Simulated assay, not measured.
Amino acid sequence: MKQNFTVRQGALDGVEAFLCVARHRSFRKAAAELGVTPSAISQAVRVLEARIGAALFVRTTRSVGLTQAGERFFSRAKPAFEELVAASEVARDLGQRPAGLLRLSVPRAIVPLLLEPLLASFCRAYPEVEVEIAASKEVVDLAAEGFDAGIRLGHLVAADMVAVPLTPPFRLVVVGSPAYFAGHKRPRRTDDLRQHACLRWRRSTGAIATWSFNDDGQAAEIAVWGPLIASDFPTMLGAAMEGIGLAQLPEPMVSNAVKAGKLVRVLDGYAPTLPGVFLCYPDRRQIMPKLRAFIDHVKDHKAGGGKAR
Rank of each mutant, 00 (worst) to 15 (best):
A219I: 03
E221V: 08
V224L: 08
Q218I: 13
L199A: 01
W201D: 01
G238T: 14
R186C: 00
P178G: 05
A182E: 12
V175N: 03
G183H: 09
R171Y: 06
I222G: 00
A220D: 02
C198G: 04
T235E: 15
C198M: 11
P187L: 10
G183I: 00
M236S: 02
S212G: 10
V173A: 12
G206S: 11
I222Y: 07
G206N: 10
V224Q: 04
R186M: 08
S204E: 14
G206V: 08
R202Y: 04
D232Y: 10
A220M: 12
Q218P: 01
D192S: 02
G217D: 02
L199N: 04
R194F: 02
L199F: 04
R200L: 13
Y180Q: 06
R202D: 03
G238H: 13
T210G: 03
T190Q: 08
T235S: 15
A223L: 01
L193F: 02
D192L: 00
Q195G: 02
A223F: 04
V175F: 09
G176Y: 02
A182F: 01
R188S: 03
V224K: 09
T190S: 14
T205A: 03
R171E: 08
R194C: 07
A240C: 13
A207M: 10
R200N: 04
Q195A: 06
R203A: 11
L228H: 07
D191Q: 15
K185S: 03
A223S: 06
I229K: 08
Y180R: 09
F181D: 04
F213Y: 12
G226S: 05
H196D: 09
L193A: 10
A223V: 08
P187F: 12
F213G: 08
V174S: 15
P187T: 12
M236E: 03
R186W: 00
D191G: 09
A220V: 14
A240R: 10
V174L: 14
A239G: 03
R189A: 14
G176H: 07
A209F: 03
D192Y: 00
D192W: 00
E221G: 12
F233E: 15
R200Y: 04
A239Y: 01
T235M: 11
F213V: 07
P178R: 06
S204P: 15
I208W: 08
I208K: 11
A223I: 11
P178T: 13
D232Q: 14
D215L: 13
H196S: 12
L237S: 08
H184Q: 09
W211K: 10
W225A: 15
G238W: 10
G183S: 11
